[in-house]
Structures are given as structure tokens and as C-alpha cells.
């Protein structure tokens, strides 16, 4: 299998400075928020790559850059060898854009309430002048709704059905890559299962590639072929689900896994994680996780660890080997 998406040294900063007058009067400097910092990853064709992380970790920003909603500040994003930010041939750009689609978190906010469902679904094809006859009906049946629903308005559907409509819209232009930004976070568990099953079926049927963005570790474990863990804009660990959940290497991943509520932990009090995510405008120097890390040393406070290979895993931690040794001693 070949890599469909290659992201190299991707960085995105946002200007969060006060307005000009305040800066002059109060002598404030410009402020920059680094949402994504030096992220390098590859997404294999026909696989599901999941990005997990807490709020402010930059997972949605990466998704938006990938579909071209935001330009990168530096670094490059290539989808099938084409970089949307620098490519100038309009034909190639157009082609690539219809190959990438997105599904958003909130199915209430991402459907225009004044449009009929069929108009919502065929829009991605219509704007490019494609043929739309019967397309909406076909897609609606493909996502488990009925063809008669095409004439209805979004408010006539439940949350799960709306998310199916969003999936149908994403499929309209025959994409090869779909960026799913928290596609089931707004849904109830039983409906979430329906939507996740639909997405898996469509992937197998149509040979799709997903970038799956989520904060829910159990969903990610179920869906993904490869998982990237983000913390404060940096990729701290990357592995396949089995390896990541069985032998997490980065202390942050270990903390995240320990903190996630488990169904069989009746009344137990697990080790509660310490501290909170630092302010992304002034991230700590060195390793961004060092203020909360139980293994942090002087080196962690000065030097940012590189993402390096360790067995099946890629991990950004100075002490990954030591920690692994320590943990295996403890369990032995």
C-alpha cells in the first residue's frame, strides 16, 4: 500500500494579538498561538488514520488544513502527490478538491435548514457542473434512508439521520479521502453504533480513506488502523491500535488511557491525572508535557524530543525506553 496523504513538518500558527490600538497603548507584543507544531505523518490508502487528543490539541486544525479550509503556516501537505497550497494548475486543484470531502461534528449546524435534503446532498456535484439527476435518491438509499426523504427538510430528521445525510453529501462527489471531524460526538451511543457501522461498510464498499478525528478513545480503537496522539499541537505518539492500547509508550498516552472511564471499573478510584493542559499561547519550553509528567527531568524542560521510532511505535519522549523498562519491571 502506498501513502495517500503525506504531511511533513506541518505547522500552523494563529495571530491572537490584541487589536492594534491596545497593542500601542498598552505596549503589548503580538501574540501567536501555535495550534499545530511540526507534525509529520502519512496516511495509507484505504486505511483509517485517527487523530486523538483533548481540546486544543490541534486535531481539527490538521483536518481543516488537509481539506484546504485553512492554509498551513509552514510545512507541506500532499494528497496523492499534490500540494493544495502551492499547486497552480486549476484543473489539478479542482480534481483534488472533489476527491476530499469532510463530515463535521454537529449535524444540526452543518446542514442548511432552508434547503431540501436533495439540494444539500447534490451541492458538491452541482457546483462543478456535474450530473445530479437521481443522485440524491441513490445516495440516501446507500446511507440507509429512503429515496422519498429527498424532498424533506433537515429539521424533519433525528440527529443520527442527519449525520447520515452528511455522509451522503460527503459521498456525492465520489471522494477518495473523507475527513471526519468528531462525526459521532453529538450522537447517542446506540445511534453512534449505527453511524460507525455505516462508515465502516462504506469504506469497504467504496475503498475510501478516512482521517478520523475524535477525542473518544474507545471509538478510535474500534475504527482506526493507525492512531496519532496529539498534545498541544504536537504528535507525541503514533502506533496501530493494538500496540497503542497494549503498550502505550508516551507518558501522556498512558495518562489518557488511565483516565478514560472504563466499563469494568466499578467504584474503583484509578490514579487521577494531575494538572491541566497548559496555555497554548505560552507553552512550556522543552517537552510540552513536562509540567504534568511524572518522569520529567532537566533535559525535558530544555530540549523538545524528536518523534522517533521504537519498535512498532513512533514516540516523542526522551525517556521512552527507560519508562518502558520501568513499567515492565513493575508488572513482572
Amino acid at each position: 500500500m502506498s501513502a495517500m496523504v503525506t504531511i511533513r513538518n506541518l505547522t500552523r500558527t494563529f495571530d491572537v494579538s490584541k487589536p492594534w490600538l491596545n497593542r500601542v497603548l498598552e505596549r503589548l507584543p503580538r501574540q501567536k498561538l501555535t495550534a499545530v507544531s511540526d507534525v509529520t505523518l502519512e496516511i495509507e490508502e484505504k486505511s483509517v488514520y485517527a487523530l486523538v487528543g483533548e481540546s486544543g490539541s490541534g486535531k481539527s486544525t490538521i483536518g481543516k488544513i488537509l481539506v484546504g479550509l485553512l492554509p498551513p503556516s509552514s510545512g507541506e501537505v500532499r494528497v496523492e502527490g499534490v500540494d493544495l497550497a502551492t499547486e497552480t494548475d486549476p484543473k489539478v486543484r479542482e480534481e483534488l478538491r472533489s476527491n476530499i470531502q469532510m463530515i463535521f461534528q454537529d449535524p444540526y449546524a452543518s446542514l442548511n435548514p432552508r434547503w431540501r435534503v436533495k439540494d444539500v446532498i447534490v451541492e458538491p456535484v452541482k457546483v462543478r457542473g456535474g450530473k445530479t439527476e437521481g443522485l440524491a435518491e441513490k445516495l440516501l438509499e446507500q446511507v440507509g434512508l429512503s429515496a422519498e426523504d429527498a424532498g424533506k427538510f433537515p429539521h424533519q430528521f433525528s440527529g443520527g439521520q442527519r449525520q447520515r445525510i452528511c455522509v451522503a453529501r460527503a459521498l456525492a462527489s465520489n471522494p477518495r479521502l473523507i475527513v471526519c471531524d468528531e462525526p459521532t460526538s453529538a450522537l447517542d451511543v446506540s445511534v453512534q453504533a449505527q453511524v460507525l457501522n455505516l462508515m465502516s461498510d462504506l469504506k469497504d464498499e467504496l475503498g475510501l480513506t478516512y482521517l478520523f478525528i475524535s477525542h473518544d478513545l474507545t471509538v478510535v480503537r474500534h475504527m482506526a488502523d493507525r492512531i496519532g496522539v496529539l498534545y498541544l499541537g504536537q504528535l507525541v505518539e503514533e502506533a496501530d491500535p493494538e500496540t497503542l492500547f497494549e503498550t502505550p509508550r508516551h507518558p501522556y498516552t498512558q495518562m489518557l488511557l488511565a483516565a478514560a472511564p472504563k466499563l469494568d471499573s466499578f467504584g474503583e478510584t484509578e490514579a487521577v491525572p494531575q494538572g491541566e493542559i497548559p496555555d497554548p499561547i505560552n507553552p512550556p519550553p522543552g517537552c510540552v508535557f513536562n509540567p504534568r509528567c511524572p518522569y520529567a527531568t532537566e533535559r525535558c524542560r530544555i530540549e523538545r524530543p524528536e518523534l522517533r521510532r521504537m519498535g512498532e511505535t513512533r514516540v516523542a519522549c526522551h525517556h521512552a525506553e527507560e519508562i518502558a523498562r520501568k513499567l515492565s519491571l513493575e508488572t513482572a
Partner: peptide
């Protein structure tokens, strides 16, 4: 039963989740 079964944590590595049909 359906609610507990439809949670991804209970999928035990199966490709599909158990789902409750309808809404």
C-alpha cells in the same frame, strides 16, 4: 442490553458494532 452492547468498548475487535435499529 442493546445500549451496553453498542458501545465501541464492547466490540471485542469485531468489525461491526451491535446496533439498536431505529431511533
Amino acid at each position: 442490553d442493546g445500549l451496553v452492547g453498542s458501545m465501541p468498548a464492547h466490540s471485542h475487535g469485531q468489525a461491526r458494532l451491535r446496533q439498536i435499529p431505529g431511533a
